[in-house]
Design a binder for these strands. Structure first.
Lengths: 221, 221
DNA sequence: ACATACATGTAATGCGTTACATGATTAC
DNA sequence: GTAATCATGTAACGCATTACATGTATGT
């Protein structure tokens, strides 16, 4: 269960409440896992029942705040979960699925889909690169909290892997951007083919510039 | 509902049975969407009830085979679904999530995770590049079936977008490969740091070669 | 005879989304 | 006073996984 991994991982840096966890998943940590509070609160209660974490209840007047900290059993669970091999189950990506059916759409609709893809991942890249800079310059509060509780000789390791995981997200997002850009240029080529009343052969060559075999295949039928 | 999109998309190329759809999702089409047969059969029945598709029942002796074809309402549904903007909901990736917690693991365990990642995506790339070649050379049977039922002037468009979507998957997989390779070199650097009993500063510099600011941040605490 | 591929389902369980629901504190 | 933020939950529904369940046709 990855949700538990994510929650225990964050709690192991610093004890905090369900509300805090929700905020962090929304803001910074969401680059690897997200969850709504409707999933978080029950999961915390369940893990508490199982003895993985424990809540220290803080009161501000009437308001109750349940600050969870990870118990030994929780650390064991977390380590065990993290070391388990990942199960790579099938792909499920609506953006790419829709792209595989773009022949059903108008070129305007295709363009709109690619542009949305582009702007979504460009935003992600900006957000995550900002995070990377924060980690590199030591401005990240959650990282500082974690470093405080750690043996100084492990600091290098922590920072190296934190950066590595953020860079992974950035690299993937950049691949999506590159793909969307390629998609847009495919659209542009098809548009010019549509505009002129040229032969199919010439058209397919233009549509897949740099991929001569595509043009060959297209001209076959 | 993306499952419906995937099924209608495949059926629009060629009428086929739930069994066929399952096989295609497992083999070739799974690069964008996968589903087990326990999802496929009920989805087909439901779409039939709603008048999106219709089954022509074929009998081979006792055995019944329900071959579905897309009705006009189904085409409308498909086109409408494909043109709708994609909802980009939060990331959820256990591999990257685990990577963000690798400081909890031994370097051997980290290496194992990265190697598994690498080999999984290398396999994907091989499979998908084979598909791309099949499309480019006109050896793809499903593509040929689709081309037969289409206006020849749209062939270019179909092939261009098919290739584009496969290339998207390849590009993303290559980003994952590159990331895993980077992860492995991070592990290697940390290993050499661990082996020698050098200072933290020198260690962190080695661990993040080419990223001098990481070393600076690490040496701060 | 036996294995493999063909062929179609249901059921239980778990994960994820959206909506519903409530109330306290703080800053303006 | 009122809006934003803090704070914690439940419920209904839908989508996904795994296991259960059954039987036929075909090739060796």
């Amino acid at each position: 269960m990855s949700l538990r991994g994510a929650l225990l991982g964050l709690l192991s840096a610093e004890p905090m409440s369900g509300y805090d966890l929700n905020r962090i998943l929304d803001e910074t940590f969401g680059y690897v896992w997200t969850a709504p509070h409707s999933q978080i609160y029950p999961a915390l209660r369940q893990m508490e029942r199982e003895g993985l974490i424990q809540a220290d209840v803080q009161r501000t007047g009437e308001r109750e705040r349940r600050v969870y900290r990870v118990l030994d059993a929780g650390f064991d669970y977390l380590r065990k979960w993290a070391a388990e091999p990942v199960v790579y189950s099938g792909e499920r990506d609506s953006a790419h699925l829709k792209a595989s059916m773009m022949h059903l759409l108008s070129l305007d609709e295709c363009e709109a889909l690619f542009r949305a893809h582009l702007s979504y991942f460009r935003q992600r890249v900006v957000i995550w690169e900002t995070r990377i800079e924060a980690i590199e310059s030591g401005r990240s509060t959650i990282l500082r909290a974690r470093l405080k509780t750690m043996d100084p000789k492990d600091h290098t390791k922590l920072i190296a892997f934190k950066l590595c995981s953020y860079e992974g997200s950035v690299m993937r997002a950049k691949a999506e951007i590159e793909w969307a850009e390629r998609g847009l240029s495919t659209v542009a080529s098809l548009r010019s083919t549509e505009a002129s009343t040229e032969l199919d052969i010439a058209g397919s060559r233009a549509a897949r510039a740099g991929r001569p075999r595509a043009a060959t295949a297209a001209s076959k039928h």
